[in-house]
Design a protein around this nucleic acid. Structure first.
Lengths: 340, 340
DNA sequence: AAATGCAACGCAAACGTTTTCGGAGTTTAT
DNA sequence: ATAAACTCCGAAAACGTTTGCGTTGCATTT
């Protein structure tokens, strides 16, 4: 039972190809009787239309691309899961690409998406991405992009984010209320919008509470886990170590846990830790980890919903729009007040 | 700058479409001079070939599908990541589908993959999947499938698994060596090959050590987290509770941690826990979790490698082949020997 | 001078659809 | 009875490629 085409159906039924095609699409031009015959034969022979032939005619692929900077990451996975659910409902297909936090890969992949392979793109930027020509080119060629989390402000389109500034502000205040005065901020990138917003929220909270900290309290980390580990360990073993760490992303908090263990620094007695995270095991950690949890699944679902809404129009140019969802601060033991 | 086709290039260069096409593919039929002119123009106008036109001609899409029963799952994500890396190297594209542990979805998605959308499939079965007609049909229609982890023995093709029997055997012996005599096994499915192998390994170890346990020590769990939680809590609060739990999958171990906390059962003093898991935070849990960790990334990469090897042949019929990778037992505190 | 060879290019078919248009046959209206 | 309208279907173009083959012009060989 090899592939069966319209032509095959037409031949066995002794009608024309166009009749078969119309019958399958319930055209009014076809009599009920032949329609039934065609349908039956299609079922019998296991006919499935060749998607690419249709794509070629319609300039629609019913496929979107999903670009993320990291795959083994709870946040992105949940977002992907959300987008996938919406796509499955709408009979869309999802091509997935890992940009590995590399601008060069992002550019290359976006380039390959040019000519009709996908109808639209959902993406989160690389931590290296500082210029947006490749993205603008794609949009110019008629393929809309919806951003989530790591967005490009400069591009006019729909962007799904969370209240990063407020969350970071609240998170920092949470630390201050629990007795911290020397809070280090672990940053991932200088070019990323979310990183900057979180940084600003952190600084604004310090400012409100008249805490003057040296610029070195903002520690710039990288993709490399091992490097981050030693960087954080040095921070914790320095002359004057911070009494709290605000990790801008989950993996930096995990590195902090490991580094603290190595350095003999107790959490939360010696060091309180909070971070943005979608870790399911946060309540089970030792100690349980205080997190700011983003609605990752909803962000992905929302991004897909917005994209599909526009894709169903004839000329899909997405309006500039900022959709901001709320994150949730979940206090746990890593920021628990201690006697000393 | 809208989409530019071969025809557009031909028109601006005042040559025929076929000349342009051949020039771009470095045909010997084209002079070096025109070849350069064409290349330059293509670069200038940002020409990218329409992938679907090519697919239509060649019956090759350079695309594969990846079906997993769950997305928010560390094992599957790492496997996906491995497959994606290999695919990106080879310029293949990956369509991703979540079957949500539902046979019906699996069947439907497989059905839609019939006519040329993909060149091949990499998948892990649903816990509900007990019949394989849909998969056989797909293979009959010329689209090869490579299984990983949750495989279908009945289908002749390449299958990537881990040494589930041995790992479960060793894991159970590990528990026995650490003083456990009443070990419960949390199972996920009766139809899944890996679940059965793990169960057999568990039973064989019990047998070797002359431990006779009632059949009720094998607890059949489900997809529903809440249900599992109460099921496990009841197990722990029963008259005579087990002194160890062997969770066949990660999420059942996490439910066990939660249930133990609810029931006031201490790990590892009252209950030792081991499980198959790819959790990055296993060392950071309270207590740290003893795991049998599968080489998930390598499994995905391996599956992709095997698939691509066959796809490059003319008639891709995959030989029956069992590729078995080794899992690693990593002892941690959840199975630590305690005084009492 | 005629025949042959070769280099460089264009024609056209094909992949599997969808859709416009026209045509044949039948029914309805005048 | 003739014209008009309607029903049902087929022919063919188009989407953007690739490729076998034919064609042209020129140089080389006899």
């Amino acid at each position: 039972m090899s592939k069966v085409s319209l032509r095959d159906l037409a031949k066995t039924l002794d009608v024309s190809i166009s009749t078969v095609s119309k019958a399958l699409r319930n055209s009014y031009e076809i009599s009920a009787e032949t329609r039934e015959r065609v349908m039956e034969a299609a079922r019998q022979l296991g006919y499935h239309p060749n998607p690419y032939a249709g794509s070629l005619r319609h300039h629609k692929s019913k496929t979107i691309a999903l670009l993320v900077p990291e795959l083994t990451n709870n946040f992105f996975i949940q977002a992907i899961s959300g987008a996938e659910s919406v796509a499955q409902e709408r009979d869309y297909h999802i091509l997935i690409y890992n940009t590995h936090e590399q601008y060069q890969k992002e550019e290359s992949i976006i380039g390959h998406l040019g000519n009709g392979r996908v109808d639209g793109v959902i993406m989160s930027l690389t931590s290296e991405t500082g210029r947006y020509d490749h993205l603008n080119d794609l949009i110019q060629s008629g393929i809309p992009i919806v951003f989530f989390d790591r967005i490009a402000h400069e591009i006019e389109t729909a962007k799904i984010t969370t209240d990063d500034f407020t969350s970071a502000f609240n998170g920092t205040e949470h630390l201050i209320r629990h007795g911290c005065r020397d809070i280090a901020f672990l940053s991932l990138s200088d070019s990323l919008s979310i990183d900057n917003k979180r940084k600003q929220g952190y600084l604004e909270a310090l400012n409100k509470h008249d805490l003057n900290l040296p610029a070195s309290r903002i520690v710039r980390c990288e993709g490399d886990d091992a490097g981050n580990h030693t960087r954080i360990r040095e921070l914790l073993q320095a002359e004057k170590r911070p009494d709290a760490i605000f990790a801008s992303v989950e993996k930096l908090a995990l590195s902090t846990y490991n580094a603290a263990r190595d350095a003999g620094v107790r959490i939360p007695e010696d060091l309180k830790v909070i971070c943005f995270s979608n870790l399911r095991t946060a309540p089970l950690l030792n100690p349980s980890l205080t997190t700011i949890t983003q609605p990752a699944y909803q962000m992905g679902a929302q991004a897909a919903t917005v994209l599909f809404k526009y894709l169903e129009k004839k000329r899909p140019v997405i309006q500039n729009e900022n959709i901001i969802l709320k994150s949730e601060l979940i206090p746990r033991d890593s920021t628990r007040k201690t006697s000393n």
